[in-house]
């Protein structure tokens, strides 16, 4: 080790981490505190002199706002249905990939994981075109398969708008789960399966009693991060429907974005974002408690 005085050596790690702390503190922590402050104020961008402390006024308005409650419901539908489909398909893909080598596997993986690299706004644009009511390929495929007889305006109908965006989000998210779960599967010692085989356990039993328990930490972490990430992902919805028609695909993240961007109501938008933030913190804590995550490692 280099010869420095002990006192200086003790400071080295802090010095090395200081740029990270500086950026996170100045551009994440300070804005978070500012958001909490603004949420207690009447604050419109174009009326800077009318700014005033109104206590819980924004929150009271939020809880009286029917669009807010619709957005809460939509956020739950959007997050939960995206998650379940992404997880299930990602798990199946990971198991298929983990079942041994095949010709061209590296290329196959590179291609099948490709959606993960596609930026949200590009996904939104491509799927918006595929869902097009007149010339879209999805309508054409469904008509050819004789599932529907007339083209459907998937993104302009209240009953299908949110589900259509969910489908695009599923396409995007399957590789994430496949990659993380595959990494978890590959970490399971092969001897455990051998031992199970000798004892005559069926592959179904092995899956439930060996694979799943050992995969649990990976499943918990990836699910937790994914839920938070999906709930905070306005890009697809903004591009494909702008939350419409009539707010039927409006989620909290798009609503915060649009109230900030279009109506420039800082106080209200900040109040909404604090509500979303607190909801996610509560969710994360409850999820960690319920799944017992961290206990087996400790």
């Amino acid at each position: 080790m280099p010869k420095n005085s002990r006192a200086v050596r003790r400071l080295v790690p802090y010095f090395m981490l200081s740029p990270s702390y500086l950026f996170i503190g100045a551009l994440m922590l300070v804005p978070l505190l500012m958001a909490i402050l603004y949420s207690t104020q009447y604050y419109m961008i174009f009326e800077p002199f009318n700014r005033a402390f109104i206590g819980l006024g924004n929150y009271l308005n939020i809880f009286k706002d029917p669009v807010f409650w619709l957005a809460v419901k939509n956020t739950l539908v959007w997050t939960f249905s995206s998650l379940v489909l992404q997880f299930t398909l990602g798990m199946i893909l990971a198991l298929l990939l983990n079942a041994g080598p095949f010709f061209g596997k590296p290329l196959y993986q590179a291609l099948v994981f490709l959606p993960w690299a596609v930026p949200g706004f590009l996904i939104g644009m491509t799927w918006k075109w595929m869902f097009n009511a007149q010339f879209g390929v999805i309508n054409d495929l469904l008509i050819r398969a004789q599932i529907i007889s007339q083209p459907i305006g998937f993104l302009s109908m209240p009953s299908t708008a949110l589900l259509s965006v969910v489908l695009a989000n599923v396409w995007f998210g399957v590789p994430f789960f496949a990659i993380t779960l595959l990494a978890g599967l590959q970490a399971i010692p092969y001897e455990l399966y051998e031992a199970g085989n000798i004892e005559g356990a069926s592959s179904t039993r092995l899956f439930w009693h060996v694979t799943l328990p050992l995969l649990k930490p990976t499943m918990i972490v990836s699910t937790l991060l994914r839920v938070i990430w999906i709930a905070n992902f306005p890009d697809l919805i903004y591009i494909m429907t702008e939350g419409g028609p009539a707010d039927t695909s409006q989620t909290l993240s798009t609503y915060i974005f649009l109230t900030g961007y279009k109506s420039l109501n800082i106080g209200y938008s900040a109040g909404l974002s604090v509500v979303l933030f607190l909801a996610l913190v509560v969710f994360a804590v409850a999820f960690i408690k319920l799944t017992g995550f961290g206990r087996e490692e400790a």
Binding site: I228, L276, V281
Partner: peptide, 11 residues
């Protein structure tokens, strides 16, 4: 990592 990006927009 659990931080909603949209919270940062207005501030």
């Amino acid at each position: 990592q659990m931080f909603p990006g949209v919270v940062l927009v207005a501030p």
